[in-house]
Simulated assay, not measured.
Amino acid sequence: MKKGVLLVNLGSPDSPTAKDVKPYLDEFLMDERVIDVNPVLRNIIVRGIILNTRPKKSAEAYSKIWWEEGSPLIVISERFMEKVKQHTELPIALGMRYGSMTIKNALQELKDQGVDEVFLVPLYPHYAMSSYETVVVKVLEVQKQDFPEMEITTLPAFYSNPEYVKILSDSIAEGLKDFDYDHILFSYHGIPERHIKKSDPTKFHCQLNGACCKINSVAHHTCYRHQCYDTTELVKKQLGLPEDKVSTSFQSRLGSDPWLQPFTDKEFERLGQEGVKKLAVITPAFVSDCLETLEEIAMEGKHQFQEAGGGDYIHIPCLNDRDDWAQLMAKWINEWEKSSVLPEYNIQ
């Protein structure tokens, strides 16, 4: 069998216009793992309400961060793939969960090169229904329907892999090098609390109060909340960050259902009001900068913090196409190629 690699990231509209943003949002929000309600209600919420107003607003946000080469997330993902290719001989294709760079086209690209054994790499460090899981499910659906001869092996969530934590920590240290911070905020993508419960294989472990995180459980393998807080702790330990100068929050909530807290925008207000003058923000739920990091955090977050009385503000970029990050991904790929070994990680 010939081996190959499929990298999958979130995706992007083709342009920062309402015309292109609308079908992208439709595909994204109609995903049953993103808005996990019955199909009739989801259709009403998305196509009857959200898509009548949000595409224009989202297009304006995309326009603020759009690069001359195109969508930052797409451009960065392509640059990352090219760097990974420099350190492995396996064919690599790039697909997106949503948008025109489809997973089907990426698998076809691998098939055209004779690949029939695929190493699937969801470009998400943490496990969540609405990110990691939906990528895996979609790839398996496409494989079953269009590429039944292919075998799929999936990279596990890698947030606690020691090599990954080292590179993430190094990137943060570099971002903080010339910034005498008062506080560091680790802001992660938010999800509804019910997703935590749904992802719990035991159906009773996760209590959403932090106490359950201290009890070693199989539930931690699919608990996004636990994995986010664990990431913060791992980086704090790696860099020796002061306990009282670091906190964790969750951004980008949608609707009125309970979402993971504390909310990032409320933290911006709190920190500014409490006298923090120099704030650094890190977004470790993403490996590639995108709308959520470049507009919501780097731009809107700065405004919210300073409006609340804060001062200097920096957003530390995601890993993007760092050389050490691309080399580590290639190392994982080469280890899988040689012995089907997957990266080690320790979940506590």
Rank of each mutant, 00 (worst) to 15 (best):
V115C: 07
R97A: 13
L107V: 06
F119W: 04
E109W: 00
L120T: 01
E117Y: 05
M101K: 15
V118S: 08
Q113F: 04
L107S: 04
T134I: 07
E133V: 12
Y98G: 06
H126F: 05
G95K: 02
A106S: 13
G95V: 08
D116H: 11
N105K: 15
L120E: 09
P125G: 11
P125A: 11
Q113R: 13
K111Y: 09
S130P: 04
P122A: 11
A93E: 15
S130L: 08
P122F: 00
M101I: 12
G114V: 14
V118G: 09
D116V: 07
L107A: 09
T134L: 07
V121P: 02
T134M: 10
A128H: 09
L120G: 01
G99L: 07
Y98T: 12
E133R: 15
L123S: 11
V121W: 00
M101E: 14
M101T: 05
V115M: 10
H126Q: 15
A128D: 06
Y98N: 08
M96Y: 13
Q108F: 01
G99C: 11
Q108D: 13
G99F: 00
A93N: 09
H126P: 03
D112T: 02
I103D: 00
A128R: 01
I103M: 04
D116I: 06
Y132I: 08
A93W: 00
T102W: 06
E117G: 01
Q113A: 10
M129D: 09
Y132S: 06
M101V: 07
S130K: 07
G114I: 13
G95A: 14
Q113T: 11
G95N: 11
Q113C: 05
D112R: 09
V121G: 03
L123M: 15
R97G: 10
Y132E: 00
E133G: 01
